[in-house]
Design a protein around this nucleic acid. Structure first.
Lengths: 345, 345
DNA sequence: GCTCCTTGTGTGACCGGTCACATTCATGCG
DNA sequence: CGCATGAATGTGACCGGTCACACAAGGAGC
């Protein structure tokens, strides 16, 4: 119990040592759980810690030991559902491990700006988790200096993750493949795709899963429509697609895009799902309550964030084994926005 | 230019000092912009810093100076639009001031858990920004030990903010008042309210603004319906309200709730806005693209986050004057979901 | 009985910065 | 010309921990 109410500078291990009648090193041993401390001594030290309200100074710990027990998440945005959920997952796992979580937003995708932000984040010590679903994130991942522990959360593994620079991912390719097959199975001649900004110049995982499903079914492969991240982009893309009466099924890179597409179809008088079927990606909470409710693919972003932290934790503490990547399988959720292709034509 | 490619331990000010032929203290003066350094000396030091790729060690800085140039945001959630936007605003302002941003989620509202989390966050040094829109956040704000710099982001100022524990807020009361008046002006006899979980046992600002508008208009004051944060809660509340044919106007504590209400009305066959008008709160990005698009009150969460950081920054660096709280005025956005009350009855 | 190892504890240096103070040198002024 | 003054720089201690090592006491092995 701490009786003195007034603010004093916080107690250090030497204060605790003096109170317990031992040396500061013994206190250090107690707080680090070192075995060779006599039980009676340990008791006395713990009592002193409690009485003085001692808390280990994180700055001193980081300086002296080199370990900072912190991770920084680098992301292009904190408000998109997927990103925010990954962050929440990271935080959850980090909290359980008594790690601090930092956040650093990549405002621009411009190379120099990204590099500067990565340096700043690396300065905080600890490890980095980079959300690399977009160009800014991909650039950040590439700009991480050698020697800095980092885990990437990527759309797809472009090359097998190496031990010191591991990745986690959901199988977006498979997910897009499943969603596309679902739409084709409803009798649609083909499926159009409204893409999120691709993370690289190369084809994204979602795009390639969609394309493969079309190919296997021998369906025509229309060009993907480039969208943005938000509903506005989906709306613009939707207006374009609505003009073409041959379009009867649209897969969208995320639920926000799908929302914009739904709106565009409504505005142009095309009924969903009677005339056009729409499917999204992510299963954000609102999607189930839209009218029509949205067929989509549920992804476990929170789990992804937890897995990313687990991996990084393994890298940071040689002791903890590097866990495998338990990425959950995406799940197709069929709702009202997808239905049988209109009969005849 | 740093020619040696292999990883070495990062350069310290003593390394820089040796390279520049000065003492470490002079290097410290240069990096801190101290005036009394001869320009020629400064040049040499800067050249050495550049060559060695010197970066100030944040842990050592924090330990020696006591200032950690960091803020931690305490919040109950990172995925809700308002919370995530506030975080984004804080990060933006912090980045501009070269501050690191930490994030700490209050998973439970249970008192001991909240207190532990607050202690952990305070350990990181720097200041705290507490998002106190909900019970967990309010508890956290109360649990912050004296002496720790903190700024609260609150729904409404329960008491005038004091200098060392300032608050920022948007005028939710006024916003709810305006939204309610809008609905009344359309001829609705009264307006029902679906509430977000209140931050305190006392009436929330939104609730009280709504109530005042009803009172001034001499309209009946129905009991608010208790919702949750997400669309599911809105849906449940909407089903309840839909049963009552006298209900023609519904104000919701946030856009997610409104979405759930819209869905419930759709399911029960009540047309919006012809039979029932609905208004939300926050103007989340999807709201403009719903069908019908949602009448709502736009709040500047990002600006709120920026203001919170500015305030905290002022507290942390005595030099920087504590800026006034430039909270922007909420703005009513009228869209399709609100319309004239149904004629007759 | 002596060495040797183990257990428990203490001492000094160190991490990379900052701070308070000392020192040097050039300049201004009576 | 001598001395106070201020600019430019250096020295040592310190922040609060950790680490490597020294050292005392007690038991095992010969």
């Amino acid at each position: 119990m701490n009786v003195t109410g007034h603010t004093r500078s916080p107690a250090s291990i030497r204060d605790v040592a003096a109170a317990a009648g031992v040396s500061y090193q013994t206190v250090s041993r107690v707080i680090n759980g070192h075995p060779s401390v006599r039980p009676a001594t340990r008791e006395r030290v713990l009592a002193a810690i409690d009485e003085l309200g001692f808390r280990r100074n994180t700055a001193a710990l980081a300086l002296a030991s080199g370990r900072s027990r912190a991770v920084t998440v680098l992301t292009a945005n904190t408000t998109h559902y997927g990103y925010a959920s990954i962050l929440q997952g990271v935080e959850e796992a980090a909290r359980a491990a008594s790690y601090a979580v930092g956040i650093s937003v990549l405002e621009s995708a411009e190379e120099a700006a990204v590099a500067a932000e990565v340096r700043r984040a690396a300065d905080a010590g600890g490890g980095l988790i980079v959300i690399a679903y977009d160009p800014a994130g991909v650039g950040a991942l590439a700009a991480v200096p050698a020697g800095v522990p980092v885990v990437g959360v990527v759309e797809t593994p472009a090359s097998p993750p190496s031990g010191d620079r591991p990745w986690v991912w959901t199988d977006d390719r498979e997910a897009a493949y499943e969603a596309t097959r679902h739409l084709l199975s409803l009798g649609h001649e083909t499926v159009h795709y409204v893409a999120i900004p691709s993370s690289t110049r190369r084809t994204s995982a979602r795009t390639s899963g969609w394309r493969q499903a079309l190919k296997e079914a021998g369906a025509p492969q229309p060009r993907p429509v480039q969208g943005s991240w938000g509903p506005a982009g989906g709306h613009a893309a939707g207006l374009k697609l609505a003009r073409d009466p041959a379009v009867t099924a649209i897969l969208c890179g995320n639920d926000d895009l799908a929302l914009g597409v739904l709106r565009a179809l409504h505005e142009t008088g095309r009924a969903v799902p009677d005339e056009v079927s729409v499917a999204g990606f992510d299963d954000a909470p609102p999607s189930a309550y839209l009218t029509p409710s949205l067929t989509t693919v549920r992804l476990d972003f929170t789990g992804l964030g937890r897995a990313a932290f687990a991996l990084l934790h393994g890298v940071l503490e040689e002791s903890a084994p590097v866990a495998p990547h338990p990425v959950s399988v995406p799940e197709l959720v069929v709702r009202e926005s997808s239905g049988r292709a209109p009969a005849g034509r």
